[in-house]
Amino acid sequence: MGQGPPPPTEAVALLTGHTGDPTAIQLLSDRRGSRVWKVQGPGGAVAVKANNPAGDNAHEKAAEMAQEDDHLLRLTAAGVISPDYRAGAGTWEGGRWLAVNWIDGAPLWRALALARGPEGDRAAVRPWLAGIARGWTQHLARMHTAGWAHADVQPTNTLVTNDGQAAVIDYALACGPGDRRRIPYRGALTHTTAPEIATAILSAPADTHIQAHPAADIWSLGASLFWCWTGHRPVSYDNDLDRLEKLAAIAKGTTTALRDVRPWPFPAFEDTITACLAPDPADRPTAKELTTAW
């Protein structure tokens, strides 16, 4: 059934009605206080997340699971995500768990490996790359229209399926209307944090919630595509800097010129990514506008 700690028995028991008796259980991740498993059964597969009860931040991670479940329910009610996505959620002796239907896809960084090299410079790759970006922005457009920001747009939270579609996952940090948050939002992955979010983090007390807005998602989208296509982060800084020093560099709003690091020319794609990375949120295209720009 796989190595490492098993998923909560409460989750497996409840999900048996969804997938059937498990035929394979694989621990995919065990870091930063959270664990993720793939649970496969004859009726399908799910991804199960739970907090690590032995972690120093067990209470916070359990609250994060509950927060994501609340977000999934609200986003489903708003018609943003499919009712089939959320498979179940609940408590267990160690905290909280959450399950979503499994999406077969590769994280963006791995999916774009071919495009990062000179061999990506061919006719078939261009529409494939643009199609990934278009599908991604279509999903963000639905969120933004409903008054939500994903607030954690980054390469590991976007999967590319075999047919070239982008699937967005992980809604724990999303910021929506009338938020009743358990955990204040303080940004997500540093490398894809928008300048205005970086500025707010640097200027507000550590326990202050920062409400992310759709324009921040657009910057993060551009940063993710820039990074995964070129192999370079859009803002250059030393990896040895601490997080606040990196955020200070991002807050300046200056990015590396895409033409200087692109693996091969793709003018329309480059121009759209560059527009997403405008330092002023008001100057960035909306997700709806981007769906026709790629």
Rank of each mutant, 00 (worst) to 15 (best):
T199H: 10
W229M: 03
A194C: 04
S224R: 06
G20I: 04
A257T: 12
V36L: 14
L72G: 00
Y85A: 05
W92I: 07
A282T: 14
D121G: 14
G55K: 06
P6G: 14
G17H: 13
G95E: 01
T208Q: 12
A13F: 12
T9M: 04
H71S: 05
P263D: 11
M143A: 10
V160L: 07
F226T: 10
D179M: 13
A151F: 04
Y85H: 14
V46S: 02
A106I: 11
D260V: 06
W294A: 02
V125C: 13
H209N: 13
P6D: 13
A206C: 13
D84Q: 14
H18G: 02
W219C: 08
G120K: 09
P281Y: 00
I103W: 00
I273F: 01
L173I: 09
A50D: 07
D56P: 07
L241G: 02
D30P: 00
R134S: 03
R284G: 06
L72K: 11
Q26S: 12
M143I: 02
C276S: 07
G41A: 01
Q165H: 13
T91R: 15
I250L: 14
P205G: 03
T291A: 10
A124N: 13
W97F: 06
L75D: 01
R31K: 13
A45H: 01
N239D: 15
P8L: 02
T230G: 06
A223L: 07
D104I: 12
M65Q: 11
R180C: 07
L112R: 02
E10C: 03
Y237R: 03
G176K: 09
R110K: 15
N239E: 15
V48K: 11
S82E: 11
H209D: 12
G176Q: 00
T192M: 12
I273S: 04
D30T: 05
A215Q: 06
G55N: 11
D283Y: 08
I250A: 05
I183L: 15
L27P: 04
L225T: 04
A62L: 08
D283A: 15
G187P: 01
R96Q: 15
N101M: 05
T16F: 00
L75C: 02
P8F: 06
G135D: 08
N101V: 03
T193A: 06
K252P: 04
E68Q: 10
A141P: 06
L173C: 12
A282L: 10
G164F: 09
I201Q: 01
A133S: 04
S29G: 14
T19F: 07
R182S: 09
W264S: 01
G135V: 01
D280N: 12
G187L: 03
G17R: 05
H150I: 02
A78D: 14
A293V: 09
L129G: 07
P205D: 03
D207A: 14
D84R: 15
P42E: 09
P53E: 07
V80E: 09
T156D: 15
W92E: 04
A24P: 07
A106H: 06
T192F: 14
T23H: 02
I81K: 11
G2K: 08
H144W: 08
W92G: 10
A13K: 13
D56G: 14
R181F: 08
G17C: 13
A99P: 09
L189R: 11
R35P: 02
T158H: 10
A113G: 04
H232M: 07
W264K: 10
